[in-house]
């Protein structure tokens, strides 16, 4: 433990309104949700924020709400909760699969969807699933609320569209049945690991064609990356055309991503695995058709 806990202050708001008011008065307050990223920095003596606001107890940010066309997750929905929810398992299973591969049970009980988004790690495991499903994120401040498309949320390495005083409050996903879902986290071991590459794909099939497709990757760019051009290369194709289009789509994907060498892997490896996983996703679509 290289930090002195006494050097930090934790503000505990009464409710969401109180939290937003405090954030408005002091925009540098750092939200603390499950703490699974914050505590690592604290132990390493590298936590840059001296004052934090503990939002873990805000009931307004909890719960999974199912509407006819959408599912809305409170920002504090944990990785354990997304695994256990029956409707998510059926219609949006990538969330549970990503949750199951994020740390171990202790982390999954504390780590939250909102925290995973706000922490803005390019190697995070649930954001690719949220991007593939084209989720929306609700940002609230004392001045009001707004919905933003998650695909435009991350603007660069650890930078986002969030304004001072804003808090992530909810995440909304469109429902859908009968889709092809593909998720593969590639870490350095089978569990308890940070992704080197993470691939999430979802495809809607109608009348023998790929009527819609969502593809997003982690670990291959400064941000978790929605791959719009690769999606465009596959969208509208008939199942019979898929195999022939794969080489072109793979080249498109390769141009879209920007992996680097770092302590965990190499750019070459990340690029090749991303390409291979696109092939596996396409093969799965073909197999389902």
């Amino acid at each position: 433990m290289r930090s002195r806990v006494e050097d930090f202050e934790l503000v505990r708001p009464r409710d969401l309104g109180d939290a937003l008011a405090r954030l408005a008065a002091e925009p540098s307050l750092r939200p603390l949700a499950g703490g699974t990223d914050v505590m690592v920095l604290l132990a390493a003596g590298k936590l840059p924020w001296k004052r934090l606001i503990d939002i873990w107890g805000l009931v307004e940010l909890r719960g999974i709400e199912v509407q006819p066309a959408t599912v809305t997750l409170g920002a504090l929905t944990t990785f354990s909760e997304v695994q256990e929810h029956a409707l998510l398992q059926g219609e949006l299973p990538l969330l549970g699969r990503a949750g199951a591969e994020t740390g171990g049970p202790a982390i999954q009980n504390r780590g939250t969807i909102g925290g995973n988004i706000a922490n803005a790690s390019p190697a995070a495991d649930t954001p690719p699933a949220l991007l593939a499903y084209d989720a929306e994120v609700e940002l609230a401040s004392a001045a009001g609320r707004r919905w933003v498309r998650y695909r435009s949320f991350h603007t660069g390495y650890k930078t986002t569209v969030m304004q001072p005083g804003e808090l992530i409050t909810r995440v909304r996903l469109a429902r859908g049945a009968g889709r092809v879902h593909f998720y593969r986290k590639v870490g350095p071991r089978r569990a308890q690991a940070i992704s080197k590459v993470c691939f999430a794909g979802v495809a809607t099939l109608a009348a023998g064609r790929v009527s819609d497709v969502g593809i997003a990757l982690g670990g291959v760019a400064p941000v978790v990356l929605p791959c719009a051009q690769t999606e465009a290369a596959l969208r509208g194709l008939s199942l019979a055309e898929l195999a022939g289009a794969l080489a072109g789509a793979t080249a498109t994907l390769s141009a879209e991503i920007a992996p680097i060498d770092d302590i965990r892997s190499t750019a070459r490896y990340r690029r090749r695995v991303a390409e291979n996983l696109l092939g596996a996703f396409v093969a799965e679509i073909s197999a389902r058709g």
């Binding site: 060498d261 190499t266 070459r268 490896y269 090749r272 695995v273």
Partner: peptide
């Protein structure tokens, strides 16, 4: 023999592991 080393071996590209 990390996956990076194995990939390079499969592709015949010589050693590299960062």
């Amino acid at each position: 023999a990390t996956p990076e080393v194995i990939m390079d071996a499969v592709e015949g590209a010589g050693a590299s592991n960062g």
